[in-house]
């Protein structure tokens, strides 16, 4: 979903650049609360993984492909603020070194993938997590649903931006329909990859998964009780 230079007009691109810069500024502060000596090593890996996964376009039919956006995945693994920063760094490197995603569209791409993708993913994740049983294993389906929803929402956000500052006159209805349709399919791939990666990390180190902290804190009470009984006996 890397927007090239020229799709959106200058005022819209400046607007998204301001939004993106504000978001990244807030994320620089917010990420401090998410990162400590224990979780920082995973964050670099998550950013590198998102870069690698974005090279892996998977076919979605009719000559179209999709790739992981990674916002929901990063948010669940390392927290939404750190996720926003990681996606911004991935997009910066892609734009500067690999000519992927326009440089004047960097703000647009950070807004779509680093803000809309990440925060839609995170909010859906927390909502689904609240509805499911409070178990660590539930982190995986919650992350998959969050990943699925984040892609069409980001596609709709692009449609909205195009409605404001699109450079070529096109019927917006067909743009919305096409974006939503294809990105719903891509969302299925996003959900599959996100579910797979989150389940792998949850299986070996649930304590490092940001989205699992709440349920782990609950589990701790269950574990402590038998120890007290042993002391009494």
């Amino acid at each position: 979903m890397h927007v090239p230079d020229g799709f959106l007009d200058v005022p819209t691109s400046v607007g998204t650049a301001v939004v993106a810069a504000t978001g990244v500024g807030l994320a620089l502060r917010g990420a401090r609360r998410e990162l400590d000596d224990r979780t920082a090593p995973l964050a670099g890996l998550v950013a590198a993984f998102v870069f690698a996964a974005q090279m892996l376009n998977f076919p979605v039919g009719a000559g179209t492909s999709g790739h992981l956006l990674g916002g929901a995945l990063a948010a669940v693994l390392v927290g939404p603020w750190t996720a926003t920063l990681s996606i911004a760094v991935v997009l910066l490197v892609q734009g500067l070194l690999f000519a992927d995603g326009g440089l004047t569209a960097l703000g647009t791409n950070v807004t779509l993938m680093g803000l809309v993708g990440v925060w839609t993913g995170w909010l859906v994740f927390r909502t689904v997590q609240g509805l499911l049983p409070k178990r660590v294993s539930m982190v995986v389906p919650a992350a998959a649903v969050a990943a699925f929803v984040s892609v069409p929402v980001a596609a709709l956000a692009f449609t909205g931006l195009y409605a404001v500052g699109g450079q070529a006159p096109i019927p917006l209805g067909s743009l919305a329909t096409a974006m939503l349709g294809w990105h719903t399919l891509i969302g299925l791939g996003e959900a599959a990859i996100t579910g797979l990666v989150v389940s792998a990390v949850v299986a070996v180190r649930p304590d490092l998964v940001h989205g699992a902290r709440r349920v782990l804190a609950t589990r701790k009470l269950v574990v402590v009780r038998p120890e007290r009984d042993e002391v009494a006996a």
């Binding site: 890397h2 230079d5 020229g6 179209t64 326009g102």
Partner: peptide, 22 residues
């Protein structure tokens, strides 16, 4: 990896604004 255009580029071609890319 698939070398087909991604969702956005495909839609841009079909709906008719891919030419706006610089």
């Amino acid at each position: 990896a698939s070398s087909h255009p991604d969702g956005l580029n495909y839609v841009a071609e079909k709906v008719g604004f891919s030419g706006a890319a610089k």
